[in-house]
Design a binder for these strands. Sequence first.
DNA 1: GCCGTTTTCGGCCCGACTGTTTTCAGTCG
Length: 581
Amino acid sequence: MTVWSSPMNNRDYARVLQEIAQLMEISGENRFKVRAFENATRTVETLSEDLDQIIDRGDLQGLKGIGASIANDLRQIRERGTCDIHQMLLERLDPGLLDMLKVQGLGPKRIKLVYNELGVSNLNALKEAAEAGRLRELKGLGAKTEEKVLAEIARLAQGADRAPLPQARRVAESLRDQLDALPQSIRVAIAGSLRRGRETIGDIDLLVATDEPGPIHQAFVALPEVKETLASGDTKTSVRLHNGIQVDLRTVKNEVFGSALHYFTGSKEHHIELRTRAKRQGLRVSEYGVFKENEDTPIASRTEEELYEALGLSFIAPELREGRGEISAAEKSDLPTLVEPEQIRGDVHMHTTETDGRHSIEEMADAAKALGYDYIVITDHSQAVRVANGMTPERFGDHIARIREADGRIQGIRILAGIEVDILKDGSLDMDHDLLAEADWVVGSVHSHFNLDPDTMTERLLTGMRTGLLSCLGHPTGRILGGRNGYRYDFDAVVEACVELGVALELNGSSGRLDLNAELAEKAHRKGAMLVLGSDAHSTTGLKDLRFAVQQARRAWLGPDAILNTLTVDELLKATRPALR
DNA sequence: GCCGTTTTCGGCCCGACTGTTTTCAGTCG
């Protein structure tokens, strides 16, 4: 079974379930029933295994939030791409209503109202109704709502959606530092999905501990990045930046910083599960702490560690807080020990001025030393990548010599000679095999002919790997965050070949990629494959992108043993390419 | 619709902010 070429992939199943939840909500269905479909959506979305395989095994009802009824729906969806309840809702309601849910400030109740009263069933009709001043005729809506709705529709038309994690991270760090510099702020933290390391970010969440919230909120809305204020109260302010990203600021007393950070980090699913569990134990959890029933003084609030302890749980890292079984694992002290940034000894993927990088071997080595690494691998492009000034065999031979020379000259870090070699359309490698054998580390990547049919693409990758010369597959799916989808091939077959041939899979941390993503990394690990982190840096600052790869590895529940970069240089060189040893 | 170390029935997280209201519903995270 394949990931990319399956007629129904997990995302398709999740989309149908989500549409059911949304249409049910608009139709005024029982909210807990709606939540059941939302829960099932999340479960399917974050599976690291193909749902098709689970259906084949008859294990559907073993999944969290999926009972007999939704299991039946899923089997129908597999057969027909839809199911009875989905069909029925679509017949009764207009699918254009789903777009209207994207308008902030407009929820299911108001959508139902404008649908029933004005016959408005899509964004265009909504816009016309707002412009004509007809929304204010409805109970509970007024002129201000009309104004907001129109502004939201205009924003949606610009296509502003979720931002890639690395981009949002940089924006958030700048805002954090500015808030941190205010005299009234005691400490500042980035929370939300950024802290959990989700690969794309809907908005930025910032938390400030302070005894004087007023000046903090005033200074926040006056920051140069801020375009408009969406809402502002005593403890919470929301703004939109000029770049379109929404930022929520919450201020709290320092005494409750831990519980507030926990609350503001999410996810929603983690909170619901945690709070439901607490309630059964006679406890209440909010952003102000853990409370015993009917008491106002928290038994834990200062730190997240205290909060989990008070609930009888071992500490759960932010990257795991997705409601994917982390709470029951924490109950049994059964959580994995996750890989830590400090355990990373080296970086195996970077470019220099020899091809399309901005800095020299020496400059990259110095920057890597400053990051505390023991080793780096220089991996410039092969000639097929013309736009990147890829190397001919002659140039690569010279480059190896220069890298060896630099390695001998520069103290305090090992510099290994490598290459990012193209896996060409027919699966052959874009470099002399003798030179590839001479290199210490070879990243094999696809940079052309992305649209081959899945079988051909699979065979292409397998052919490249069977040379025995590849250390790892670089950015294995080729997806660009918010851009193109990955190329389509039989992921399972390739992972199995990786295990058999001793080829690692890269977790590429560069800004636009995060490839493999957490789900596929987890899947590859479960199938026994080795994983290796690469920054794919094209400059000294790009080296820092490796942290994003670490974070995705943590989201995949991976420990140091699963990651080759935690090995010493000698161990690393023995880990792959068994045929050459 | 799902679920169970009190339950196979009766529950299902918790609080802040807005707009349109005279005490609160709707939305959001």
